[in-house]
Design a protein around this nucleic acid. Structure first.
Length: 860
DNA sequence: CGGATCGAC
DNA sequence: CTATGTCGATCCG
């Protein structure tokens, strides 16, 4: 886009004003002068809610400035001295690192959207027009700009400025198509060019220019397009240009009815390309190359572009604005020329300096780049490091010298503005819609994120956002809505009895998995650990059935009520959802592994430790296997799972359908009265016990006995004081964690679970008692289900007869027991500390994995 | 980590 | 009537 965006509304003590950066508002031409424009805008704005909010925001900025000025008065000379040394040291370093060897070009299409619309509709060409809607304009043509009609201005105000203004709705598909055409050209000069938006891009011409030196004329020759795509005399125009030998860039028939606009272009003074017989030969210089690019863009799209050429991105960007529209400007790659250019440059022109920063610096008497340099010491003391570093770089005319492809996206969001909605049920519906849309977008890019951010704007234009980070990456509508709904619910409750009067709602997902996490995502216990969190946020609709207000969005942080109490119904739903969706194992992770069969689970039972060879029944083929080695038995199960089951009658799919379904009516809830376990809750679900230890006061010296008897524990807010493991809102369900016969502090299990070194987190099947590298919890669940529910439950000894002789022994020993009568199941998670993991040779790791001949085979 | 703010298009 | 939608970065608590 072009500089019209900078016409931000700014507020000052004098009142509401628009920055006027009108181009060539020549005398005698139709249009309005600054004063009239401001007056009209004021009238349209005054008293509106929007205006009131702008005032408020302005006060906040003023307050920030006051604070800064206050801070300034307290600066001591000692501080100044110290800062002086620091700054000047950096100046030297920066100066030394100055790199002028690159040729960076910033290409910027002129009034892009408007130009496209004018190109495609000749009737618009001589009219003031803008693209957008009555509520918001994206851009305007140059004629409209004379009336003060700018991008980011609401259409209804623009109409007041210019009653004849034609407003054309956005046609993004069209702009994208044009943009693609432009990019194809740019790619020929720099394969790694960097598109900033549909109408803007950086290219690094350094390499191209080296090659270009040896290019024959033929490779630099282009022919004028003579086709008749615009019925409106396009061809005529080209002829005219050819005959008059005007610079190529004057060809545009579209944008500028006023040719005097071009008078100030650099091109006029420079060698124009030779023009003969409708062909043009461009030279080998930088300028020529850029002209060639612009020429080709215009030939291909009938649209003009402006360009800036400089040794770095910051300068190139500023340059492209210099001779806009349809011009180019170059800063020669030597320090003096750079500094000359920077000298009087208003700071507001440089990218990254916006309305607020400009105002703050202005309060310090800084409006130009040289003034930044003069005040560099002061800036050191008043701004953050990254800020004053940035300022210093600007004042020295420095910027990135190589354009790097944008990294992976960090977030994805969708938001909508609407006429007031204050009925909560409608708000929830809207929220769900947004989640739906967002989920679809996420799906397109295959992304999953861990943080959900809800954005709300009320009718007074006050914006707030509420975020919640869950432990597992989520992406489906249901998952996102589960979190967003809670965030919204809290806001609604907080505001009650008044309704939220919203004008905008948005949902964003961020904290995407990085590559490493993606790779191991499914092999980790994390999925499972997070299951609780996600599910926990699933609260039942209708939302009107609200519980006592909670400041914390995370229900579990309220200690009075059991989460399971509240959310049982949801979990049930999820479970059914998961079951239904057999194709997608990644749906909401099942809480299934929290369940253990048995009548009762309490903390007072001994662990059986007999060791003998015995007969085990395979849960799949039901064949009895005599074995003294669990691993061997496990291998057998693996085979069956893979499908090479000895018994052809047994199908895995069949098994799955026979898994016990939980019925709502069968869900009961009971709390143990055991004082020692006051936080203990036992859910009786279809005779399946779910045991949860809400271990708020969990500590490393927790009673090992009680832990070994508990299937799953839920921890929250562990070690709030500790920085490293401080995860205020993070709640994880940890499996019993046992090592060397003692319970490790939960914090130690927490780290590996959240640090990405997940490959060493191992699930241990409570039945076969062996480590399981699972790729999916759903699959692991299935494995456990099979072991548990098909009458094959056997007493398993605790003695490890693991032939590998690795540390399985320790795990097996403490992994808990499974007995038919009482059926206490302990699921053990073994995690290693990140440090140890990274130190392990890769080969050893690989071996460890490959030697684990268990269920993971099935998953591949 | 959460929330607000800035800045850009 | 009627003041966007999306994204990244940064700062502070």
């Amino acid at each position: 886009m072009d500089s019209t965006k900078k016409s931000d509304a700014i507020l000052s003590k004098e009142g509401f004003q628009f920055r006027m950066e009108l181009n060539d508002n020549k005398a005698g031409m139709e249009g309005l002068d600054k004063e009239k424009i401001n007056k009209i805008i004021m009238e349209a704005t005054k008293g509106s809610r929007f205006y009131e909010n702008e005032l408020k925001k302005d006060h906040q900025v003023n307050h920030r400035i006051e604070k800064m000025m206050q801070q300034k008065t307290q600066i001591t000379s000692l501080q100044l001295k110290k800062a002086q040394l620091q700054v000047d040291k950096l100046v030297l370093e920066l100066e030394e690192s100055r790199d002028l060897s690159h040729v960076i070009v910033h290409i910027d299409m002129d009034a892009f959207y408007a130009a496209v619309e004018m190109r495609d509709n000749p009737e618009l060409r001589d009219k003031p027009m803008a693209v957008g809607s009555m509520s918001m304009l994206s851009t305007s043509n140059y004629l409209a700009r004379r009336f003060g009609v700018r991008a980011a201005m609401p259409g209804f105000i623009a109409k007041k400025l210019c009653p004849n203004l034609v407003i054309v709705p956005l046609n993004f598909d069209k702009y994208r198509a044009v943009s693609k055409d432009v990019r194809e050209i740019l790619a020929e000069y720099d394969l790694n060019f960097l598109p900033l938006s549909l109408d803007e891009a950086y290219i690094d011409l350094t390499e191209h220019l080296k090659e270009r030196l040896n290019w024959p004329k033929g490779k630099r020759t282009y022919f004028l397009r003579t086709d008749n795509i615009t019925e409106n005399g396009r061809e005529e125009h080209i002829k005219e240009v050819a005959e008059s030998s005007l610079p190529v860039h004057s060809i545009s028939p579209v944008l500028f009815e006023d040719n005097t606009l071009h008078a100030n272009e650099d091109n006029a003074k420079q060698n124009t390309p030779s023009l003969a017989e409708h062909s043009i030969i461009f030279g080998i210089s930088v300028e020529e190359a850029v002209k060639e690019i612009r020429f080709r863009i215009e030939q291909k799209t009938t649209l003009t572009a402006s360009a800036g050429i400089a040794p770095n991105m910051m300068l190139a960007k500023v340059c492209s604005d210099k001779n806009k529209p349809n011009g180019q400007f170059r800063i020669l790659p030597n320090r003096q020329d750079v500094m000359d250019f920077i000298k009087d440059l208003p700071i507001r022109k440089v990218p990254g300096i916006g309305r607020v920063t400009e105002k703050m610096l202005k309060a310090l008497g800084i409006t130009t780049c040289t003034e930044i340099y003069q005040q560099r010491v002061l800036l050191t003391l008043l701004f953050s490091e990254s800020s004053w570093h940035n300022f210093l770089n600007i004042s020295l005319g420095l910027g990135s010298t190589h354009i790097e492809k944008d990294g992976e996206r960090k977030s994805m969001s969708t938001e909508r503005t609407f006429s007031e909605i204050s009925v909560s049920s409608e708000q929830y519906t809207l929220c769900q819609e947004l989640c739906h849309d967002l989920a679809q977008d996420l799906l397109k890019e295959g992304l999953k994120g861990k943080t959900v951010i809800l954005k709300l704007k009320n009718v007074n234009f006050e914006v707030k956002s509420r975020a919640c980070t869950v432990l597992s990456a989520i992406s489906t509508e249901e998952e996102i809505f589960a979190v967003a709904k809670e965030l919204l619910r809290v806001e609604i409750e907080m505001a009650s009895p008044h309704p939220l009067r919203l004008r905008l709602m948005g949902v964003r997902v961020s904290s995407f998995l990085n590559e490493e996490e993606k790779k191991h995502h499914q092999k980790s216990i994390l999925n499972f650990l997070q299951a609780s969190k996600v599910a926990r946020t699933l609260s039942p609709l209708p939302p009107e059935k609200l519980e006592p207000r909670q400041c914390n969005i995370l229900p579990l942080t309220s200690h009075g009520e059991s989460f399971f109490n509240k959310k049982r119904a949801e979990m049930q739903q999820n479970r059914e959802l998961l079951r239904d969706d057999t194709a997608n194992q990644q749906k909401i992770p099942s809480l299934r592994t929290l369940e253990t069969t048995g009548q009762e689970t309490n903390g007072e039972r001994e662990v059986e430790k007999s060791t003998k060879s015995q007969i085990l029944t395979c849960p799949i083929c039901f064949q009895k296997q005599e074995t003294s080695n669990l691993e061997t038995f496990n291998r057998h199960i693996d085979k069956c799972l893979v499908g090479v089951c000895e018994d052809p009658n047994v199908q895995i799919q069949h098994k799955k359908e026979e898994l016990p379904m939980l019925k709502k009516s069968n869900i009961n809830h009971a709390s143990t009265s055991d004082d020692k376990k006051k936080n203990l809750e036992v859910l009786h679900i279809n005779k399946v016990n779910k045991l949860v230890l809400d271990c708020d006061d969990y500590s490393s010296n927790s009673n090992a006995e009680s832990v070994t008897s508990i299937a799953v524990e839920c921890k929250q807010g562990i070690e709030r004081g500790s920085k490293e493991s401080d995860r205020p809102s993070a709640i994880a369900i940890n499996m019993c964690y046992l090592q060397n016969d003692s319970v490790l502090p939960v914090s130690e299990t927490q780290q590996p679970c959240t640090s990405g070194t997940l490959e060493d987190t191992v699930l241990i099947c409570p039945v076969c008692n062996l480590e399981q590298k699972t790729t999916s919890l759903a699959l692991f669940n299935r494995h456990v289900d099979m072991c548990l529910n098909k009458g094959i439950i056997q007493k398993l000894t605790e003695e490890s007869t693991d032939p590998d002789g690795n540390d399985n022994a320790a795990n097996a020993q403490s992994a808990g027991s499974l007995r038919r009568g009482q059926q206490n199941i302990n699921i053990t998670v073994r995690t290693k500390r990140p440090g140890l993991i990274s130190q392990q040779p890769a080969s050893k790791k690989a071996k460890a994995i490959s030697s684990r001949n268990t269920i993971d085979k099935f998953f591949k």
